[in-house]
C-alpha cells in the first residue's frame, strides 16, 4: 500500500476531498489490478463469512478440547433473554456475537481473521450488531469494513500483528481500533472522527500482553473479544462527540511497536508468564496433559 502513515492518509483524503474507504478502494484496486466491483465483492464475501461464523457460533455450545470454554455465548443468550441487560439491545448483541465468533474459532470452525484469529470476534460483532439494530445498509457495512481494513493495514506496515511479536495489543488491540474506525464510518462520522476513534481505541489498550493459559486461544482470549468490542464502541462514541486524542495516531502506533519490543518474551504468546503461570493455570495445565 502506498500509504504508509495516517498523516499521509489524512492529507490524501483532504486534498482529494474523499472518505477513507474511497481512498482504500482506489489503492486496493491499483495493487490488485482489479475494478472497484471486484474488491467490493471480495469484501462482501468476507462480511458474509463473518455472518456465517456468528450464526454457527450462536447455535453451538460444543466445548473445546480442553473442556474449559465453548458455552459462554449460550449463557449470554439465555441470561439476556431472561434478565435483560444494563446497556440494552446493542450491547447484548455485540457481546453475544463477539463470543459466538470467538468460540467458533476455538472449535477449529471457519472464521475470518480480523486482523488475527484470536481477535476474530471484535470487528464482526461491532459491524453486524450495530447494523442490525440501527438498520445500516449493506453498502455502508462494507464501507465500514473497508475503512477498518485500511486502518489495520497502516498499523501492520509498522508492526507485525502477532501476539508473539508485540503482545495482545497488536491483536485484540488493533482489532478494537479497526472496529472503532468501521463503526465511526457507519455512524456517519467524518474522516477526523474516524481517525480519532481509532486513536482513542488503540491508545487505551497499549501494553496488553499475550499470556494464554496452556498456549490455547481460550483463556483470556475468548472473553477479551467481547470486552474489546465494547471498547471500540466507547472510542467511537467519544470521537463522534468531538473528543480527540492529544497524541496523534502515528505516534500511538510507534508507541505500540516500542512497547511490544520492551515487553518480556514471557508475555508474548509463549505461555511462560502472566496468567499462564498463575497457580490455577499450572493446575489446569497438569490436568489437561494428564487427560491427554
Amino acid at each position: 500500500m502506498a500509504i504508509l502513515s495516517f498523516e499521509e492518509l489524512i492529507n490524501k483524503c483532504e486534498n482529494e476531498n474523499k472518505k477513507i474507504y474511497e481512498i482504500a478502494l482506489e489503492e486496493e484496486s491499483k495493487i490488485q489490478d482489479e475494478t472497484f466491483d471486484v474488491i467490493k465483492i471480495r469484501t462482501l464475501e468476507t462480511l458474509l463469512a463473518m455472518k456465517d461464523a456468528i450464526k454457527s457460533g450462536l447455535l453451538s455450545n460444543e466445548k473445546s478440547i480442553s473442556n474449559w470454554c465453548g458455552d459462554d455465548c449460550e449463557k449470554l443468550q439465555k441470561g439476556y433473554q431472561t434478565k435483560g441487560s444494563i446497556l440494552g439491545k446493542i450491547f447484548e448483541k455485540i457481546t453475544t456475537y463477539a463470543l459466538a465468533t470467538a468460540e467458533e474459532n476455538l472449535r477449529m470452525g471457519r472464521i475470518v481473521a480480523c486482523p488475527t484469529a484470536g481477535s476474530c470476534g471484535i470487528v464482526p460483532s461491532v459491524i453486524i450488531a450495530v447494523a442490525e439494530e440501527k438498520n445500516i445498509s449493506e453498502t455502508e457495512q462494507l464501507n465500514g469494513l473497508i475503512t477498518a481494513g485500511l486502518t489495520g493495514l497502516i498499523v501492520s506496515n509498522k508492526v507485525q500483528l502477532a501476539g508473539a511479536v508485540a503482545g495482545c495489543q497488536a491483536e485484540c488491540g488493533v482489532a478494537s481500533a479497526m472496529a472503532a474506525a468501521a463503526l465511526t464510518q457507519m455512524m456517519g462520522g467524518d474522516n477526523n472522527e474516524i481517525i480519532q476513534a481509532t486513536s482513542l481505541a488503540l491508545k487505551n489498550i497499549l501494553g496488553l500482553t499475550c499470556d494464554p493459559v496452556c498456549g490455547l486461544v481460550e483463556v483470556p482470549c475468548i472473553k477479551r473479544n467481547a470486552f474489546l468490542a465494547i471498547h471500540a464502541v466507547t472510542a467511537s462514541e467519544l470521537a463522534l462527540c468531538g473528543v480527540e486524542s492529544k497524541i496523534p495516531l502515528d505516534e500511538i502506533v510507534d508507541t505500540l511497536k516500542i512497547t511490544g519490543q520492551l515487553m518480556s518474551p514471557l508475555l508474548k504468546e509463549t505461555s511462560q508468564g502472566g496468567l499462564a503461570k498463575t497457580k490455577t493455570a499450572i493446575e489446569l495445565e497438569k490436568k489437561l496433559f494428564n487427560n491427554k
Binding site: A24, E28, I31, M108, I111, V112, C120, L145, L150, V217
Partner: peptide
C-alpha cells in the same frame, strides 16, 4: 516496500484458532 492489501488484515477466511499458529 512491497505494497500490501487490506485483505492482509481482514482475512483469511480460515479455520481457527490462531492466524499465526494455524492458518500461517
Amino acid at each position: 516496500m512491497e505494497q500490501k492489501s487490506i485483505f492482509s488484515v481482514i482475512s483469511p477466511i480460515m479455520v481457527g484458532p490462531s492466524s499465526s499458529h494455524t492458518a500461517g
